[in-house]
Nucleic acid binder design. Sequence first.
DNA 1: CATCAAGCGGATGACCCATCCGTTTATCCT
DNA 2: AGGATAAACGGATGGGTCATCCGCTTGATG
Lengths: 193, 193
Amino acid sequence: MTHPFILGHMSLRRDAARNWDQIVETGRRLVDEGTPLRLNEVARAAAVGVATVYRHFPTPEALLETIALPGLEALAARGEHALTEDDPGTAFTGLLLAGIDALLADPAIPPVFSAPDHVLPRTAEVVARLAGLNTLLLDRAQRAGAIRPGLTAADITRLICGIVYAATLEPDAAARPALTHRYLDLLLTGLRT
Amino acid sequence: MTHPFILGHMSLRRDAARNWDQIVETGRRLVDEGTPLRLNEVARAAAVGVATVYRHFPTPEALLETIALPGLEALAARGEHALTEDDPGTAFTGLLLAGIDALLADPAIPPVFSAPDHVLPRTAEVVARLAGLNTLLLDRAQRAGAIRPGLTAADITRLICGIVYAATLEPDAAARPALTHRYLDLLLTGLRT
DNA sequence: CATCAAGCGGATGACCCATCCGTTTATCCT
DNA sequence: AGGATAAACGGATGGGTCATCCGCTTGATG
């Protein structure tokens, strides 16, 4: 990942951009290792001054959101692709499955996705985009009679997070994907008409 | 709550027991307020020296487990009562509902209940007791044909925690109980044969 | 009442966080 | 090219929290 031009017309000095990259990359590594993001530690691991990290990312949340962004955008793209599918039922369940897999695959995503609000505009934007997609696909599936009425998109979002959370209670991480898929099946049985 | 005699034959000096009570009571208040338990803060709020708190509860987890214990034991008692019910299906679902309500009602319970291990023997014991009850009631319900086979008690436990977690994503706390009940209904539709 | 161990509390060293500021460096302009 | 300038750097440091240690107090015991 490489630093994006801000608002499309502003750029960072070359050394700043390089540091930005190193910080995000290091943060990604730490997140993947399961370490909670401590900005001082990120600075040390990235061989960069502490102030540099704080200048780019005032809080751990800001860095985490930056790290999570690509994954969230991939998921949103996946959702937009689902709009073109023929069967509203499979389009909807397909997005749920993709969401679960994304949440499981990238430890940066769950905390960002389930946070009540976001510090970066781009994160807020992509999460809102996902919510819109979710609403749209759910509505379609409900109209097609594939999903029972009386459920909101917010319910779906929460339940997906709940399923992923449930799977994290399994100590063996390798077993989690299979678990989430079983739990999603269970949920879908309840969701269908 | 009042300090239990340790192993049934050892007792604390009277002032120590009084402090113990005050610490647990203060901790309970803080937990109910949603404050994360910080031992220094508990000491200040309980008008007690820091060392006194640390002597009784070496870690925040130890205090939290102590605070959660009564609720967990009430739930276990509820589960033992469920054993005497006639219909295995309602006995099982009744315990699930009771579990959810307990997790929602007492903020001390979820972190203790879903922790992979426990620092106090009594906590470990009561959680194990609950697991046993869960296994037993699930097995009965499955044999009676009320619940589909292929699910373990651990699955159930995780799913219950997942549902409660899902409800905590709703910002309005007053709406959460209704949510969890709806989600449990959904889950039960999936669980039935 | 005297003895003494159990218990008390707060001072303190260790550690983490995040800001500030003197120095360095990229960029721009002549 | 090279100097001027602002952007960016980095680490020293003050502020805050954590948990231990130890000299003092107090309840229990005979």
